[in-house]
């Protein structure tokens, strides 16, 4: 990780898995049932880690060099794959957040007594009223909703 960060990557993801090298696998023939496969993995596979990162093309050599230097003597495989396109989809949270209302009312504070602006923030499930002079705050929670029949 340090080698990757030093080489200039900004983000990555890590997958832990169990794997077998082709030389370990050679000559093996297992029964095609889940139980055999699981026991084979448990007994023979070794712990491995897959680290993925997307980097700028011109920085690749520098990053690979740095990783190779940091992992000298370790067993590793580096795969360099071109990426043709990336589509990132974020869950839209705008609708849920849009419900926050902010209001003000200038009245004597219940706590400090000063005729100061009392700020009111109303969210979907909670509300807060606080004094801009002393900071005393009251919190409210949603109790319920009611629909009037027309």
């Amino acid at each position: 990780m340090n080698a990757l960060v030093d080489a200039g990557i900004t983000g990555f993801y890590v997958l832990e898995y169990k794997g077998m090298s082709p030389q370990d696998w050679k000559g093996f023939a297992i029964k095609e049932d889940p139980k055999s496969a699981i026991s084979l993995i448990r007994d023979y596979a070794t712990d491995a880690m897959l680290i993925c990162s997307v980097v700028e093309e011109e920085r690749t050599d520098e990053i690979v060099e740095s990783v190779m230097k940091a992992l000298e003597g370790e067993k590793y495989t580096i795969l360099e794959v071109p990426i043709r396109r990336i589509i990132v989809n974020y869950k839209s949270e705008v609708q849920e957040r849009a419900e926050t209302w902010l209001m003000e009312k200038k009245v004597p504070c219940f706590y400090c007594g000063e005729n100061a602006v009392q700020r009111i923030r109303i969210d979907m499930n909670k509300a807060k009223i606080w004094c801009t002079n002393c900071g005393a705050a009251r919190y409210y929670l949603i109790k319920g909703v009611e629909k009037e029949e027309n």
């Binding site: 109303i122 009251r138 409210y140 949603i142 319920g144 009611e146």
Partner: peptide, 8 residues
């Protein structure tokens, strides 16, 4: 349509 909040 009404929403009710209680003091917490």
């Amino acid at each position: 349509f009404s929403r009710f909040y209680t003091f917490h």
